[in-house]
Design a binder for these strands. Structure first.
Length: 397
RNA sequence: GGGGGAAUGCCCGAGUGGUUAAAGGGGACGGGCUGUAAACCCGUUGGCUUUGCCUACAGAGGUUCGAAUCCUCUUUCCCCCA
Protein backbone atom coordinates (compact mmCIF):
# COMPACT_ATOMS: atom_id res chain seq x y z
CA UNK A 1 0.00 0.00 0.00
CA UNK A 2 1.03 3.55 -0.65
CA UNK A 3 0.87 6.35 1.83
CA UNK A 4 -2.27 6.59 3.85
CA UNK A 5 -3.42 9.90 2.39
CA UNK A 6 -2.86 8.70 -1.15
CA UNK A 7 -5.15 5.83 -0.41
CA UNK A 8 -7.78 8.11 0.99
CA UNK A 9 -8.00 10.06 -2.24
CA UNK A 10 -8.21 6.90 -4.29
CA UNK A 11 -10.82 5.42 -2.04
CA UNK A 12 -13.02 8.49 -2.11
CA UNK A 13 -12.84 9.08 -5.85
CA UNK A 14 -16.37 9.45 -7.24
CA UNK A 15 -17.98 9.00 -3.86
CA UNK A 16 -20.34 11.49 -2.28
CA UNK A 17 -19.83 11.56 1.47
CA UNK A 18 -17.58 9.92 4.01
CA UNK A 19 -18.29 9.68 7.72
CA UNK A 20 -15.69 10.32 8.79
CA UNK A 21 -12.59 11.00 6.84
CA UNK A 22 -10.52 11.07 10.02
CA UNK A 23 -11.70 7.61 10.94
CA UNK A 24 -10.81 6.38 7.49
CA UNK A 25 -7.30 7.79 7.75
CA UNK A 26 -6.87 6.21 11.17
CA UNK A 27 -8.00 2.82 9.93
CA UNK A 28 -5.69 2.95 6.93
CA UNK A 29 -2.76 3.80 9.14
CA UNK A 30 -3.03 0.45 10.80
CA UNK A 31 -2.01 -1.05 7.50
CA UNK A 32 -4.39 -3.99 7.57
CA UNK A 33 -6.84 -4.50 4.68
CA UNK A 34 -10.17 -2.87 5.40
CA UNK A 35 -13.27 -4.98 5.72
CA UNK A 36 -15.65 -3.24 3.36
CA UNK A 37 -19.26 -4.17 3.88
CA UNK A 38 -22.05 -3.95 1.36
CA UNK A 39 -25.46 -5.14 2.39
CA UNK A 40 -27.46 -6.43 -0.50
CA UNK A 41 -31.17 -6.76 -0.41
CA UNK A 42 -32.42 -9.80 -2.29
CA UNK A 43 -35.96 -8.49 -2.45
CA UNK A 44 -35.90 -8.51 -6.23
CA UNK A 45 -33.81 -10.89 -8.28
CA UNK A 46 -32.44 -9.02 -11.26
CA UNK A 47 -29.50 -6.65 -10.93
CA UNK A 48 -29.16 -3.51 -12.98
CA UNK A 49 -26.61 -0.76 -13.50
CA UNK A 50 -27.65 0.87 -10.24
CA UNK A 51 -26.41 -2.16 -8.35
CA UNK A 52 -23.38 -2.25 -10.58
CA UNK A 53 -22.21 1.13 -9.32
CA UNK A 54 -21.78 -0.32 -5.86
CA UNK A 55 -20.39 -3.62 -6.99
CA UNK A 56 -17.84 -1.90 -9.20
CA UNK A 57 -16.82 0.29 -6.32
CA UNK A 58 -16.36 -2.78 -4.20
CA UNK A 59 -14.22 -4.33 -6.88
CA UNK A 60 -12.11 -1.20 -7.00
CA UNK A 61 -11.39 -1.43 -3.30
CA UNK A 62 -10.81 -5.12 -3.68
CA UNK A 63 -8.08 -4.35 -6.20
CA UNK A 64 -6.55 -1.91 -3.76
CA UNK A 65 -6.11 -4.80 -1.39
CA UNK A 66 -9.19 -4.46 0.76
CA UNK A 67 -11.67 -7.14 1.65
CA UNK A 68 -15.28 -6.94 0.44
CA UNK A 69 -17.85 -8.41 2.77
CA UNK A 70 -21.15 -9.01 1.05
CA UNK A 71 -24.08 -9.39 3.40
CA UNK A 72 -26.97 -11.22 1.86
CA UNK A 73 -29.79 -9.55 3.69
CA UNK A 74 -32.12 -12.50 3.89
CA UNK A 75 -33.52 -11.44 7.21
CA UNK A 76 -33.66 -7.78 6.31
CA UNK A 77 -35.24 -8.50 2.96
CA UNK A 78 -38.14 -10.02 4.75
CA UNK A 79 -38.64 -6.72 6.53
CA UNK A 80 -38.03 -4.58 3.46
CA UNK A 81 -36.01 -1.39 3.41
CA UNK A 82 -38.39 1.50 3.99
CA UNK A 83 -35.96 3.94 2.35
CA UNK A 84 -37.62 5.88 -0.40
CA UNK A 85 -40.85 4.00 -0.09
CA UNK A 86 -44.11 5.72 0.48
CA UNK A 87 -45.93 2.58 1.39
CA UNK A 88 -45.19 -0.38 3.57
CA UNK A 89 -43.72 -3.20 1.57
CA UNK A 90 -45.10 -6.68 1.70
CA UNK A 91 -43.11 -9.08 3.81
CA UNK A 92 -41.43 -11.59 1.53
CA UNK A 93 -41.48 -15.31 2.08
CA UNK A 94 -38.31 -17.13 3.01
CA UNK A 95 -38.38 -19.18 -0.17
CA UNK A 96 -38.71 -16.12 -2.34
CA UNK A 97 -35.79 -14.48 -0.61
CA UNK A 98 -33.61 -17.58 -0.94
CA UNK A 99 -34.31 -17.77 -4.62
CA UNK A 100 -33.58 -14.10 -5.16
CA UNK A 101 -30.34 -14.39 -3.24
CA UNK A 102 -29.12 -17.14 -5.53
CA UNK A 103 -29.84 -15.10 -8.64
CA UNK A 104 -28.31 -12.06 -7.06
CA UNK A 105 -25.02 -13.81 -6.39
CA UNK A 106 -24.89 -15.27 -9.86
CA UNK A 107 -25.30 -11.82 -11.37
CA UNK A 108 -22.98 -10.10 -8.91
CA UNK A 109 -20.37 -12.58 -10.06
CA UNK A 110 -20.39 -10.81 -13.42
CA UNK A 111 -18.73 -7.86 -11.73
CA UNK A 112 -16.99 -9.08 -8.62
CA UNK A 113 -14.64 -11.97 -8.21
CA UNK A 114 -16.73 -13.81 -5.69
CA UNK A 115 -13.86 -16.10 -4.68
CA UNK A 116 -12.24 -13.08 -3.10
CA UNK A 117 -15.36 -11.89 -1.38
CA UNK A 118 -16.62 -12.84 2.04
CA UNK A 119 -20.28 -13.70 1.66
CA UNK A 120 -22.44 -13.85 4.73
CA UNK A 121 -26.14 -14.31 5.19
CA UNK A 122 -27.56 -12.27 7.98
CA UNK A 123 -30.10 -14.90 8.83
CA UNK A 124 -27.08 -16.55 10.46
CA UNK A 125 -27.44 -14.25 13.43
CA UNK A 126 -30.97 -12.98 13.19
CA UNK A 127 -32.39 -16.49 13.29
CA UNK A 128 -30.71 -16.99 16.64
CA UNK A 129 -31.84 -13.75 18.13
CA UNK A 130 -34.47 -13.84 20.81
CA UNK A 131 -37.26 -11.39 21.18
CA UNK A 132 -35.46 -9.85 24.11
CA UNK A 133 -32.34 -9.36 21.99
CA UNK A 134 -34.45 -7.45 19.54
CA UNK A 135 -35.93 -5.31 22.28
CA UNK A 136 -32.44 -4.54 23.49
CA UNK A 137 -31.52 -3.49 19.97
CA UNK A 138 -34.47 -1.14 20.10
CA UNK A 139 -33.06 0.72 23.08
CA UNK A 140 -30.23 2.09 21.00
CA UNK A 141 -32.31 4.65 19.18
CA UNK A 142 -35.47 6.69 19.56
CA UNK A 143 -38.70 7.21 17.71
CA UNK A 144 -37.83 10.87 17.32
CA UNK A 145 -34.59 9.94 15.62
CA UNK A 146 -36.40 7.61 13.24
CA UNK A 147 -38.97 10.23 12.41
CA UNK A 148 -36.23 12.64 11.44
CA UNK A 149 -35.68 10.59 8.35
CA UNK A 150 -37.33 12.01 5.29
CA UNK A 151 -39.00 8.79 4.28
CA UNK A 152 -40.70 8.34 7.61
CA UNK A 153 -41.28 12.02 8.14
CA UNK A 154 -43.07 12.37 4.82
CA UNK A 155 -45.18 9.33 5.36
CA UNK A 156 -46.00 10.34 8.89
CA UNK A 157 -47.11 13.80 7.81
CA UNK A 158 -48.99 12.47 4.83
CA UNK A 159 -50.82 10.07 7.07
CA UNK A 160 -49.68 6.92 5.34
CA UNK A 161 -49.03 3.96 7.58
CA UNK A 162 -45.62 3.13 8.97
CA UNK A 163 -45.21 -0.40 10.29
CA UNK A 164 -43.38 -0.83 13.58
CA UNK A 165 -41.24 -3.46 11.92
CA UNK A 166 -39.94 -0.84 9.52
CA UNK A 167 -38.18 0.89 12.37
CA UNK A 168 -36.16 -2.25 12.83
CA UNK A 169 -34.70 -2.24 9.37
CA UNK A 170 -31.92 0.27 10.08
CA UNK A 171 -31.20 -1.45 13.36
CA UNK A 172 -30.84 -4.78 11.67
CA UNK A 173 -28.57 -3.34 9.04
CA UNK A 174 -26.50 -1.71 11.74
CA UNK A 175 -26.30 -4.92 13.67
CA UNK A 176 -24.89 -6.66 10.61
CA UNK A 177 -21.94 -4.31 10.88
CA UNK A 178 -21.39 -5.37 14.47
CA UNK A 179 -21.49 -9.02 13.50
CA UNK A 180 -18.96 -8.74 10.69
CA UNK A 181 -16.86 -6.04 12.38
CA UNK A 182 -16.97 -3.83 9.34
CA UNK A 183 -14.33 -1.15 8.88
CA UNK A 184 -16.25 0.55 6.13
CA UNK A 185 -19.79 0.27 4.93
CA UNK A 186 -20.81 1.55 1.54
CA UNK A 187 -24.20 2.35 0.10
CA UNK A 188 -26.11 4.84 -2.00
CA UNK A 189 -26.64 8.33 -0.67
CA UNK A 190 -30.16 7.31 0.26
CA UNK A 191 -28.63 4.86 2.70
CA UNK A 192 -26.90 7.50 4.81
CA UNK A 193 -29.17 7.06 7.79
CA UNK A 194 -29.02 3.29 7.71
CA UNK A 195 -25.24 3.41 7.46
CA UNK A 196 -24.87 5.78 10.35
CA UNK A 197 -26.98 3.61 12.64
CA UNK A 198 -24.24 1.04 12.18
CA UNK A 199 -21.77 3.43 13.75
CA UNK A 200 -23.97 3.83 16.81
CA UNK A 201 -24.51 0.13 17.27
CA UNK A 202 -20.82 -0.65 16.84
CA UNK A 203 -19.89 1.98 19.35
CA UNK A 204 -22.47 0.56 21.75
CA UNK A 205 -20.94 -2.88 21.25
CA UNK A 206 -17.51 -1.53 22.15
CA UNK A 207 -16.23 -1.69 18.59
CA UNK A 208 -14.44 0.87 16.50
CA UNK A 209 -17.27 2.47 14.48
CA UNK A 210 -17.31 1.85 10.78
CA UNK A 211 -16.59 4.50 8.20
CA UNK A 212 -19.66 5.20 6.08
CA UNK A 213 -19.07 6.00 2.44
CA UNK A 214 -21.94 6.93 0.18
CA UNK A 215 -21.98 6.62 -3.58
CA UNK A 216 -24.06 8.51 -6.11
CA UNK A 217 -27.37 7.03 -7.09
CA UNK A 218 -27.75 6.84 -10.82
CA UNK A 219 -30.98 7.88 -12.41
CA UNK A 220 -32.90 5.51 -14.63
CA UNK A 221 -33.89 5.93 -18.24
CA UNK A 222 -36.38 8.62 -17.38
CA UNK A 223 -33.52 10.72 -16.09
CA UNK A 224 -35.40 11.64 -12.95
CA UNK A 225 -36.06 8.74 -10.68
CA UNK A 226 -33.45 6.39 -9.36
CA UNK A 227 -32.87 3.32 -11.42
CA UNK A 228 -35.18 0.60 -10.29
CA UNK A 229 -36.59 -2.44 -11.90
CA UNK A 230 -40.02 -1.85 -10.50
CA UNK A 231 -40.11 1.61 -12.05
CA UNK A 232 -39.28 0.04 -15.39
CA UNK A 233 -36.43 2.47 -16.01
CA UNK A 234 -33.49 0.15 -15.56
CA UNK A 235 -30.78 -1.38 -17.69
CA UNK A 236 -30.32 -4.94 -16.52
CA UNK A 237 -26.93 -6.62 -16.30
CA UNK A 238 -28.34 -9.52 -18.25
CA UNK A 239 -30.21 -7.47 -20.83
CA UNK A 240 -29.19 -8.44 -24.38
CA UNK A 241 -26.51 -6.24 -26.02
CA UNK A 242 -28.93 -4.51 -28.31
CA UNK A 243 -31.09 -3.44 -25.36
CA UNK A 244 -28.16 -2.29 -23.28
CA UNK A 245 -26.96 -0.15 -26.14
CA UNK A 246 -30.37 1.16 -27.10
CA UNK A 247 -31.46 1.93 -23.58
CA UNK A 248 -28.24 3.79 -22.94
CA UNK A 249 -28.81 5.86 -26.06
CA UNK A 250 -32.20 6.87 -24.76
CA UNK A 251 -30.75 8.36 -21.58
CA UNK A 252 -31.15 12.06 -21.14
CA UNK A 253 -27.86 13.86 -21.82
CA UNK A 254 -27.66 15.11 -18.26
CA UNK A 255 -27.20 11.57 -16.96
CA UNK A 256 -24.12 10.85 -19.04
CA UNK A 257 -21.55 12.26 -16.66
CA UNK A 258 -22.49 10.00 -13.80
CA UNK A 259 -22.73 7.01 -16.08
CA UNK A 260 -19.28 7.63 -17.49
CA UNK A 261 -17.70 8.14 -14.10
CA UNK A 262 -19.42 5.32 -12.32
CA UNK A 263 -19.80 2.69 -14.99
CA UNK A 264 -16.77 2.97 -17.23
CA UNK A 265 -13.05 2.86 -16.55
CA UNK A 266 -12.27 5.96 -18.56
CA UNK A 267 -9.99 8.55 -17.01
CA UNK A 268 -11.58 11.74 -15.75
CA UNK A 269 -9.85 13.88 -18.39
CA UNK A 270 -11.09 11.63 -21.13
CA UNK A 271 -14.61 11.81 -19.79
CA UNK A 272 -14.49 15.60 -19.66
CA UNK A 273 -13.33 15.69 -23.26
CA UNK A 274 -16.16 13.45 -24.38
CA UNK A 275 -18.75 15.46 -22.52
CA UNK A 276 -17.45 18.65 -24.06
CA UNK A 277 -17.91 17.25 -27.55
CA UNK A 278 -21.00 16.14 -29.43
CA UNK A 279 -23.49 14.71 -26.95
CA UNK A 280 -24.66 12.20 -29.49
CA UNK A 281 -21.18 10.84 -30.05
CA UNK A 282 -20.41 10.85 -26.36
CA UNK A 283 -23.51 8.82 -25.69
CA UNK A 284 -22.65 6.36 -28.41
CA UNK A 285 -19.24 5.90 -26.81
CA UNK A 286 -20.88 5.42 -23.46
CA UNK A 287 -23.35 2.92 -24.83
CA UNK A 288 -20.62 0.96 -26.56
CA UNK A 289 -18.46 0.94 -23.43
CA UNK A 290 -21.22 -0.34 -21.24
CA UNK A 291 -22.31 -2.93 -23.75
CA UNK A 292 -18.72 -4.11 -24.20
CA UNK A 293 -18.24 -4.33 -20.47
CA UNK A 294 -21.30 -6.51 -19.99
CA UNK A 295 -21.12 -8.56 -23.18
CA UNK A 296 -17.60 -8.27 -24.55
CA UNK A 297 -15.84 -5.96 -26.99
CA UNK A 298 -17.24 -7.65 -30.07
CA UNK A 299 -20.81 -7.36 -28.84
CA UNK A 300 -20.25 -3.70 -28.10
CA UNK A 301 -19.03 -3.00 -31.61
CA UNK A 302 -21.84 -4.99 -33.17
CA UNK A 303 -24.47 -3.27 -31.09
CA UNK A 304 -23.11 0.11 -32.11
CA UNK A 305 -23.04 -0.81 -35.80
CA UNK A 306 -26.50 -2.26 -35.69
CA UNK A 307 -27.84 0.77 -33.89
CA UNK A 308 -26.54 3.07 -36.60
CA UNK A 309 -28.00 0.87 -39.26
CA UNK A 310 -31.46 0.83 -37.74
CA UNK A 311 -31.80 4.33 -36.42
CA UNK A 312 -29.45 6.46 -38.43
CA UNK A 313 -29.83 4.66 -41.74
CA UNK A 314 -33.32 3.43 -40.98
CA UNK A 315 -32.37 -0.11 -41.90
CA UNK A 316 -33.20 -3.42 -40.36
CA UNK A 317 -31.68 -5.20 -37.41
CA UNK A 318 -29.32 -8.14 -37.92
CA UNK A 319 -31.66 -10.65 -36.51
CA UNK A 320 -35.35 -10.34 -36.80
CA UNK A 321 -37.39 -12.83 -34.87
CA UNK A 322 -39.30 -15.00 -37.26
CA UNK A 323 -42.15 -17.38 -36.74
CA UNK A 324 -45.06 -19.03 -38.36
CA UNK A 325 -48.58 -18.16 -37.45
CA UNK A 326 -50.59 -21.02 -35.97
CA UNK A 327 -53.19 -22.26 -38.40
CA UNK A 328 -56.09 -21.42 -36.14
CA UNK A 329 -55.37 -17.71 -36.55
CA UNK A 330 -55.65 -17.91 -40.29
CA UNK A 331 -59.02 -17.18 -41.82
CA UNK A 332 -60.09 -17.80 -45.39
CA UNK A 333 -59.18 -14.25 -46.41
CA UNK A 334 -55.88 -14.26 -44.56
CA UNK A 335 -54.64 -13.40 -41.08
CA UNK A 336 -56.14 -10.42 -39.32
CA UNK A 337 -53.39 -8.02 -38.36
CA UNK A 338 -54.86 -7.28 -34.94
CA UNK A 339 -54.75 -10.96 -34.00
CA UNK A 340 -51.27 -11.35 -35.40
CA UNK A 341 -49.91 -8.46 -33.38
CA UNK A 342 -51.52 -9.79 -30.26
CA UNK A 343 -50.22 -13.27 -30.89
CA UNK A 344 -46.67 -11.98 -31.34
CA UNK A 345 -46.84 -9.89 -28.22
CA UNK A 346 -46.47 -6.70 -30.25
CA UNK A 347 -49.68 -5.57 -28.58
CA UNK A 348 -51.05 -6.73 -25.28
CA UNK A 349 -54.66 -6.64 -26.38
CA UNK A 350 -56.75 -6.24 -29.47
CA UNK A 351 -57.58 -2.74 -28.36
CA UNK A 352 -53.94 -1.81 -28.11
CA UNK A 353 -53.26 -3.26 -31.54
CA UNK A 354 -56.03 -1.11 -32.99
CA UNK A 355 -54.69 1.91 -31.21
CA UNK A 356 -51.21 1.37 -32.61
CA UNK A 357 -52.63 0.95 -36.07
CA UNK A 358 -54.75 4.07 -35.85
CA UNK A 359 -51.84 6.00 -34.40
CA UNK A 360 -49.69 5.18 -37.39
CA UNK A 361 -47.24 3.06 -35.43
CA UNK A 362 -47.46 -0.07 -37.55
CA UNK A 363 -45.60 -0.90 -40.72
CA UNK A 364 -46.14 -3.93 -42.91
CA UNK A 365 -43.26 -4.63 -45.26
CA UNK A 366 -42.10 -1.06 -44.60
CA UNK A 367 -45.41 0.49 -45.58
CA UNK A 368 -47.52 2.21 -43.00
CA UNK A 369 -50.81 0.45 -42.41
CA UNK A 370 -53.57 2.11 -40.45
CA UNK A 371 -56.46 -0.08 -41.53
CA UNK A 372 -57.47 -2.15 -38.57
CA UNK A 373 -59.08 -4.70 -40.85
CA UNK A 374 -55.89 -5.33 -42.75
CA UNK A 375 -55.27 -9.00 -43.56
CA UNK A 376 -51.98 -10.68 -44.24
CA UNK A 377 -52.53 -12.93 -47.25
CA UNK A 378 -52.26 -16.67 -46.85
CA UNK A 379 -49.00 -18.18 -47.91
CA UNK A 380 -47.11 -14.92 -47.45
CA UNK A 381 -44.17 -13.87 -45.33
CA UNK A 382 -44.48 -10.42 -43.92
CA UNK A 383 -42.19 -8.06 -42.06
CA UNK A 384 -44.09 -6.41 -39.27
CA UNK A 385 -42.77 -3.33 -37.49
CA UNK A 386 -44.32 -1.73 -34.45
CA UNK A 387 -42.95 1.57 -33.33
CA UNK A 388 -39.36 2.25 -34.22
CA UNK A 389 -37.73 -0.74 -32.70
CA UNK A 390 -39.89 -3.82 -32.70
CA UNK A 391 -39.68 -6.10 -35.68
CA UNK A 392 -41.06 -9.51 -36.45
CA UNK A 393 -41.18 -11.58 -39.59
CA UNK A 394 -44.27 -13.70 -39.74
CA UNK A 395 -45.17 -16.50 -42.12
CA UNK A 396 -48.82 -17.04 -42.76
CA UNK A 397 -49.50 -20.64 -43.74
C1' G B 1 -62.74 1.39 23.58
C1' G B 2 -65.71 6.07 21.80
C1' G B 3 -66.53 9.70 17.87
C1' G B 4 -65.61 11.60 12.93
C1' G B 5 -63.77 11.04 7.86
C1' A B 6 -62.14 8.31 3.55
C1' A B 7 -61.81 4.17 -0.31
C1' U B 8 -62.67 6.30 -8.12
C1' G B 9 -59.11 3.98 -13.97
C1' C B 10 -51.26 2.68 -13.90
C1' C B 11 -50.77 7.05 -10.16
C1' C B 12 -52.83 11.73 -8.30
C1' G B 13 -57.53 13.61 -8.49
C1' A B 14 -62.84 15.70 -10.07
C1' G B 15 -67.56 13.83 -9.89
C1' U B 16 -72.83 13.12 -4.79
C1' G B 17 -79.29 9.57 -8.79
C1' G B 18 -79.72 9.75 -15.54
C1' U B 19 -75.69 12.24 -22.94
C1' U B 20 -70.09 9.03 -17.07
C1' A B 21 -65.89 4.03 -19.79
C1' A B 22 -66.11 8.45 -15.85
C1' A B 23 -63.30 16.00 -16.11
C1' G B 24 -58.18 17.54 -15.22
C1' G B 25 -53.09 16.40 -14.41
C1' G B 26 -48.98 12.93 -14.30
C1' G B 27 -47.02 8.62 -16.37
C1' A B 28 -47.00 5.32 -20.39
C1' C B 29 -47.52 4.24 -25.52
C1' G B 30 -47.81 5.84 -30.85
C1' G B 31 -46.93 9.90 -34.46
C1' G B 32 -44.15 14.68 -35.94
C1' C B 33 -39.35 17.25 -35.11
C1' U B 34 -34.48 15.03 -33.57
C1' G B 35 -29.33 12.63 -31.65
C1' U B 36 -34.06 6.17 -29.47
C1' A B 37 -31.38 13.42 -25.63
C1' A B 38 -34.09 17.80 -24.06
C1' A B 39 -38.01 21.08 -25.37
C1' C B 40 -42.33 21.41 -28.22
C1' C B 41 -46.81 19.78 -31.16
C1' C B 42 -50.58 15.87 -32.23
C1' G B 43 -53.10 11.29 -30.99
C1' U B 44 -54.24 7.13 -27.76
C1' U B 45 -54.60 5.24 -22.86
C1' G B 46 -60.63 -1.25 -19.51
C1' G B 47 -61.83 -5.71 -22.66
C1' C B 48 -64.17 -7.87 -26.94
C1' U B 49 -66.41 -11.16 -32.30
C1' U B 50 -66.02 -2.61 -32.15
C1' U B 51 -71.85 1.64 -35.93
C1' G B 52 -72.58 -2.82 -31.00
C1' C B 53 -71.68 -5.71 -26.56
C1' C B 54 -69.41 -6.80 -21.78
C1' U B 55 -66.87 -5.42 -17.37
C1' A B 56 -65.62 -1.20 -14.09
C1' C B 57 -65.67 3.70 -9.30
C1' A B 58 -62.90 -1.28 -2.01
C1' G B 59 -66.36 -6.12 -1.26
C1' A B 60 -71.43 -8.18 -0.59
C1' G B 61 -76.45 -7.13 -0.56
C1' G B 62 -80.62 -3.52 -1.09
C1' U B 63 -83.72 1.00 -2.81
C1' U B 64 -84.84 2.84 -7.90
C1' C B 65 -87.30 2.75 -14.50
C1' G B 66 -82.05 4.12 -13.73
C1' A B 67 -76.50 4.27 -8.87
C1' A B 68 -69.55 5.76 -8.73
C1' U B 69 -73.40 8.86 -6.61
C1' C B 70 -78.93 6.77 -1.71
C1' C B 71 -79.38 2.63 2.35
C1' U B 72 -77.29 -1.83 5.11
C1' C B 73 -73.41 -4.95 6.37
C1' U B 74 -68.11 -6.24 5.62
C1' U B 75 -62.98 -4.94 4.78
C1' U B 76 -59.05 -1.41 4.84
C1' C B 77 -57.00 3.36 5.93
C1' C B 78 -56.81 8.26 8.23
C1' C B 79 -58.00 11.88 12.12
C1' C B 80 -59.68 13.28 17.10
C1' C B 81 -60.69 11.61 22.12
C1' A B 82 -59.43 7.67 25.77
Amino acid sequence: MTTATGDVEAILRHTVTCHTRDDLVAKLKRGAPLRVKLGVDPSSPDLHLGHAVQLRYLRRLQRMGHRPVLIIGEATAMVGDPTGKNTTRPVLSREQVEQNAATYLAQAGLILDLDEVEIVRNSAWFDRMTFMDAIRMGTSTTVARMLERDTFDERYKAGTPIGIHEFFYPLMQGHDSVEVRADVEIGGTDQTFNLLVGRDLMRAAGQDPQVCITLPIIVGLDGVQKMSKSLGNSIGLTDPPRDVFGKTMSLPDAAMGDYFRLLTDLADAEIEALLAGSPRDAKATLAERITAWLHGEAAGREAAAEFDRIFRDKGLPDEIPESELPADLVEPDGAWIVRVMQHLGLASSGGEARRLLKGGGVRVDDRKVDDENHRLPRGSTTLLQVGRRRFHRIRVP
